[in-house]
Structures are given as C-alpha cells and as structure tokens.
Design a protein around this nucleic acid. Structure first.
Length: 662
RNA sequence: GCCGGCGUAGCUCAGUGGCAGAGCGAGGGUCUCAUAAUCCCUAGGCCGUGGGUUCGAUUCCCCCCGCCGGCACCA
C-alpha cells in the first residue's frame, strides 16, 4: 500500500486557535481523507509547539507554570480538531520526552555527519519574542520582519547552524525540484531570498529555561524553530536507535510528502528546514505548500483589531439552529469552496451562510431529499433496476470517468474550489434532469414504469457518486446521505478513484429520508455566531483586557529607565530619502544641537507637515546608518498594532526644545 | 527602490487574438417529487487609462494610474 505523510504546522500553544489554524488543519484533513480514498496509508501529523519565551511569559502573566499553560492550551487544540472532524493520526507536543530525544538525536547526528555544520559562537543581536525569530538585520534598532514589533537585544554564547554553506545546495534543490515549493510564485520568492545570500542562524539560547536542553551542554536550550521543525520527524517516531531512524513508523513514512503551511512561515520550511536535513543527511520532504491568509471581512485578522474569528461559534451555532450536525461540514465546505487555495481568501460569515443555504441546503441536501422521497413513494423504497437502458447522455457525462478524473485531478493539485465547483455542477444537472424527465408525472401511468425506474436509478446513482466525490470535504453529511440511500459501510472506505457508474445495486432498500442540511435564517444565524464569538473574546467573569497589551515581560527598574535620555525636539526640516518608502530625513533641534534623525514615518506624515512640530527624541541612542545616512537618535511614535501607521508623540502645552522628558 | 501579480456585469471571480462568461444578489415566470426548495428567462458591463503590433485585442507589447504580495527598508 503506498504511503502519504502530511503535516500541518505545529501550532504555537500560547493562545487558542482561530479560523486561520483551523483552515490549514481542515485542508490537510481533506487531503488526508482524499488520499485514503485513493488507497494510500496516510500519516497525518499535527501538534503543538510548547516552548519559548512567549509561553514562559504568557504563563507568568496568568500566574501558572509554563507546563500548566501548555497542558491547558494543547487540550483546546485537540478539542477543536475533534469538533472539526479532523482525523489526524499523530499529534506531537514539543514538550514530550520523545520529542526532546528526537531533537537531541538530530543535532548529534548532524554533528557526527557534518562536523562543521554546527559551531559555538557569541551571538549579539536581536530576537523577536513574538515570532521566535532571530532578526538578522544588524542595524539598530531592529524590528521583526514578520510582525514589526521591536526585537529585543540579546548577547550570549550560542550554537549556530552554518546556513551560509547551503546556498548552493538549496539553489540546486530549487532548480532540480521546482515543485518543492508551491504555489510557483512562492518558489520564486524563496529562490530570490536565497540568491541574496544566507547568514548562519543561531539554534540555541542560554537565556531561557523553557526548552529542550542541548546534549552535553544543558546550559543551552534549543532555539524554537529548530525544535519545532523537528516535530515533523519526532511526530512519526524519529529518535530511536543509532542515527534515530530505528522506528518502523519513521522508516515507513519519512520523508514527508507534504508540509502544509501558511505563507508567513515559508522561510523556515523552504530554506532552514531542508538545510537542517541536508546537514543531518536525512531525505528531504517532497513538497512545501504555502497557502494564503484568511482575511476577516476584508481585513487581516489581528487580536489588536479584535477581529479574530474563531471556528467554534460557527460550527456550534449552525448545529444548534438546524438541530442537525451540519456546522462542521458547512465550515469545511465554505472554506474550500469560496477561496482559491493558495491565494489570500476572505472569510465572511454572510458568505458562509449564503453558501450553506444555496449549495448545501438547496443544492445537495434538497436533491437527496427529493430523490429519496421519490424512491420511497414510487418504488416502495427499493432501488429499481434500470435494466440495460443507456444512461442519459448529459448525466453520463458527469458520472463518467473523464469527469471523475477531472475532479480527482483537482484534488491532487489542491484546487479544491475547482473540485467542488465541478462536483456541484453535477448536483445542478441532476436537478435539471429531474425537471425534464418529471418522474412524478411518469409515476402516474404504469406504461411509463420502465422509464420512471431508469430516471430514478440514474438520479440515485448520480447522487451516490457526488457523495463519494464530496466526502473528503463534507465527511459527516455525505456519510449521512450515504446511509439514507441504503448503502452499507463507511463511505470513507469507498475507493474514490474506482467509482463506476452502475455500481449501485438494484434491490437495495433505502433508509429513512431526512433533511441533511436544514435551511437557516441568515440573520438569526449571524447574530447567534456573533454572540458566541463575543463569549470567547470576553469570557464571562473575566476582567476586560486593557486595550493596549502591556509590553510583554518582566518589569524594569527605575535605573534602567534612567539610562534613556529623552528630549523635546523641534523639527527644523524634513525630506524624503530617495529609494526608501517609509524613511524621512529630519533635522531636529534638541536645544544644544541640531541632530539628523531618520524616522520611518513617511507613510503617515508628509515632510512639510512636520516642520515646526515638537517631538520626543531618544537623544543618547548610538548613531546608526540607514540608507547610507547617519541617524543620531530616534523619534518616538505610537502605533495601534504591527500594521498601524505611526502617530508621533507630541505636547499639548508649549515647551522649549531640549527639555528633558521623563 | 528592486522583483512579481492584479485591475472584466451591483458583489465574488472565470476567460480567450476574431461574436464578452459563471455564481451570488435583484426582477419576472414555471413545476410540485423536494428543505417557501428545483427549473427557465432577464444584467445591454468604456473587459483600469493612453499608445503600439495586427485584417482584427479584453486576450500580445510599451507608458501611466490604482491595488496587492515578496525583498530591501522602517516605528
């Protein structure tokens, strides 16, 4: 039996999952179910990334230990996956003993096989706590390229991975396997990133405790990305025996056929990860697919905007309002149907409810209902024998092998929207067919019996095939229709690539027809979802959160603050810098001198409107060069979140330039 | 600034060198097996602007405008 091994990212367990994580996981589940129906033995790994400063700090805030925090959060992930019908076969926690062993085994193996791949050196630089990312930018101050938050300054002895040595090998990999990264435009982005040159990366930390200890050097703890990526190995059994490959499950499933990720973490998967594996002399995964983001009502979801959507309210609200278990399939269908996979997509409750009523309730659900009712009423609930009547041409087209194969090929290429569009075209066609043939009229006269039976058989057989083709996306409801049609066993066991017209056995006794997708009132559903979302955002009894998240982490002493010299400055001149989008060159009078300060505020402020304004300057910041120009100081500005435009600090009353701010 | 993509009916998007399409929404009609479901008809849209190639361009090329992504850069 051929194998297929796919993974979701190992989700960071510092908070609960939103629809974005659910999206990735659902997509993988659809692929996993599809592959199983094609006869593959599937290993499907997901899990939680439970180490790092962020977890430490989040736990500290709640007054619990990191272990307690991640225990709690990983359970929320598991519960959600259960609610969404996710059939993962493996779940890895990075705090588990077997994972720790795997990480240590991997690094030992690497040092044994490629002795110069890992070395110890002093790291002085910036680290983004939020994204667990070392910021390679050597300028000062540095900010995280992912989230834009200021990176924290750290200086410590670290183990480094010699990524710089892998530029040529990675480029060769991309050249020989252009399918390695998908979609293709991502491959191009990755390639140009690597062509621009690679720096070595730190893969250990000394300053934190909450991590996996470095073998024979327990002062060090593994860098979170090295730790987390290794989950793809440990999750299926790596880490046993000499070299780590003794486990039969690992032998069977590695290398992964697919790492499904969001586009924001492509660099780690398409650059770091293959380099880590090359150094360890392990086979590389076959494919990295980076999908787009799910925007919420056209905006990027972000906690600070308060527009994070969670999956649970949608699923539960639909289940409650319909009195049927439909929410999960509705969400899955919507996510895969509405967006072009790979691109950014929009998540809109209104569109979801529209899709539910139009495609699921009025479409598939109603078709099942009308066909089953007619079998019940006109054929005593027994599937009729069509004899050797030819299949009506148009129906036959949709049920034919080329058509089936077109849908399967869409699944194969992760073109879920296409697969569903074509599958649902079959639903429409059968509806049309019924209107044309009018079985309810045929049933009036006994001489039409043969034709009636042929029509109803064709409709049932089409419905059977549609259910099978839609099963990976809508597993629960298609199974329910399957059972109502009198078909035995699990639809999941059907070999989707061997579907044949005519396999529906005449004489089958159907089950009791029952609405699979009851219609919902959109307004009512919308309000119910909204209410449940608010419940999650602001749990009853919980104190409302302060609007601005306090700078994560430990308090500083007054002496620390005293090191910072803040002064009032007056902007004397301001001009754009050629070649820079965001940067302005300012001359600022701070009393005893006029300083040249560069500030990244060009998107928010026109140069001319700044002249004469009183601003706050960090006066004792070390000079730094940007775009070839020296900056002597830093302008203070506030921004709502990572994407927000900066707003300058200013004064309501008058105050002379040079005054100290404290 | 560099690289890439996009700009088509109210909305979401397909699409091809030669009569501009689908779904949703809206309007009208129809059937009655069905979940007030199905099915049929109806949108006269400068296919972003301006040039060019061509017998002919929405589809090929160039400029411009607007939007988006990656890199660089940045609070």
């Amino acid at each position: 039996m051929p194998k297929f091994y796919l993974t979701t990212p190992i989700y960071y367990a510092n908070s609960r999952p939103h629809v974005g994580s659910a999206y990735t996981t659902i997509v993988c589940d659809v692929i996993a179910r599809y592959k199983r129906m094609c006869g593959y033995e599937v290993a499907y790994l997901t899990g939680t990334d439970e180490h790092g400063v962020n977890i430490e700090r989040a736990a500290e805030k709640l007054g619990i230990t990191p272990a307690e925090l991640v225990d709690r959060n990983q359970q929320i992930f598991r519960d959600l996956w259960k609610l969404l019908g996710i059939q993962h076969t493996h779940f890895i926690r990075t705090t588990s003993a077997e994972h720790a062993r795997a990480v240590q085994t991997l690094v030992r193996r690497t040092m044994a096989r490629t002795p110069d791949a890992i070395y110890k050196a002093r790291y002085e630089g910036r680290y983004c706590v939020h994204d667990n990312l070392y910021v390679s930018d050597s300028s000062e101050p540095a900010n995280c390229p992912l989230c834009g938050r200021p990176a924290e300054l750290i200086s410590e002895e670290n183990y480094f991975f010699r990524l710089s040595a892998y530029q040529g090998k990675l480029l060769a990999l991309y050249r020989d396997h252009p399918e390695f990264v998908q979609p293709d435009f991502r491959m191009n982005e990755v390639r140009s990133f690597v062509e621009a040159g690679l720096k070595d990366v730190s893969i250990s930390r000394r300053s934190i405790k909450w991590g996996i200890p470095w073998p024979d050097d327990p002062e060090h703890v593994f860098y979170v990305w090295y730790d987390a990526l290794t989950s793809y190995l440990s999750g299926i059994g790596f880490g046993q025996g000499e070299g780590g490959e003794a486990n039969p499950s690992f032998k069977k499933f590695w290398p992964a056929n697919l790492h499904m990720i969001g586009k924001e973490i492509i660099r780690f998967h398409a650059v770091y990860w293959p380099a880590f594996l090359m150094a360890a002399e392990l086979p590389l995964p076959e494919k990295i697919f980076a999908h787009g983001w799910l925007l919420f009502e056209q905006e990027k979801m972000s906690k600070s905007k308060g527009n994070v959507a969670y999956p649970e309210p949608i699923v539960k609200a639909l289940d409650e309002l319909t009195g049927a278990k439909v929410g999960n399939d509705a969400l899955r269908y919507y996510l895969l149907r509405e967006t072009v996979f790979g691109q950014d997509g929009n998540f809109s409750r209104d569109a979801l409810l529209t899709r539910y009523n139009a495609d699921l309730a009025n479409g598939l659900g109603n078709l099942a209902s009308r066909v089953l009712t007619m079998i019940e009423n006109y054929c005593e609930g027994i599937i009729p024998d069509p004899g050797n009547a030819t299949v009506p041409l148009r129906i036959h087209e949709l049920a034919s092998q080329p058509h089936r194969d077109a849908i399967l090929s869409s699944y194969e290429n992760f073109e879920f929207s296409d697969a569903l569009t074509v599958t649902w075209a079959a639903v429409e066609l059968v509806d049309k067919y019924l209107v044309e043939e009018k079985p309810w009229v045929l049933a009036q006269k006994t001489e039409n019996r043969k034709q009636l039976e042929q029509v109803l058989y064709s409709a049932m057989e089409s419905l059977r095939i549609v259910c099978a083709l839609a099963h990976p996306v809508a597993p629960e409801s298609t199974q329910r229709i399957w059972s109502q049609m009198g078909l035995q066993g699990a639809l999941a066991d059907v070999r989707i690539n061997q579907l044949q017209w005519g396999d529906f056995k005449p004489g089958t006794r159907i089950g009791k027809p029952e609405a699979v997708f009851p219609r919902v009132d959109k307004k009512e559903a919308w309000e119910r979802i909204e209410a449940m979302e608010n419940e999650i955002r602001n749990p009853a009894g919980a104190a409302p959160k302060p609007a601005a998240e306090p700078a994560a982490g430990a308090k500083i002493a007054i002496e620390d603050f005293a090191k910072i010299e803040l002064r009032v400055g007056v902007v004397k001149s301001a001009e754009r810098i050629p070649g820079a989008d965001k940067l302005l060159k300012l001359l600022v009078d701070i009393g005893e001198e006029v300083r040249q300060v560069l500030a990244g505020i060009a998107l928010a402020y026109a140069p001319e409107e700044l002249i004469g304004r009183k601003v706050v300057i960090v006066a004792n910041l070390a000079p730094r060069k940007m775009r070839g120009l020296e900056s002597n100081g830093m302008l203070l500005a506030a921004s709502a979140d990572a994407d927000g435009k900066p707003v300058l600090c200013t004064f309501a009353e008058d105050i002379p330039a040079g005054s100290k701010v404290k």
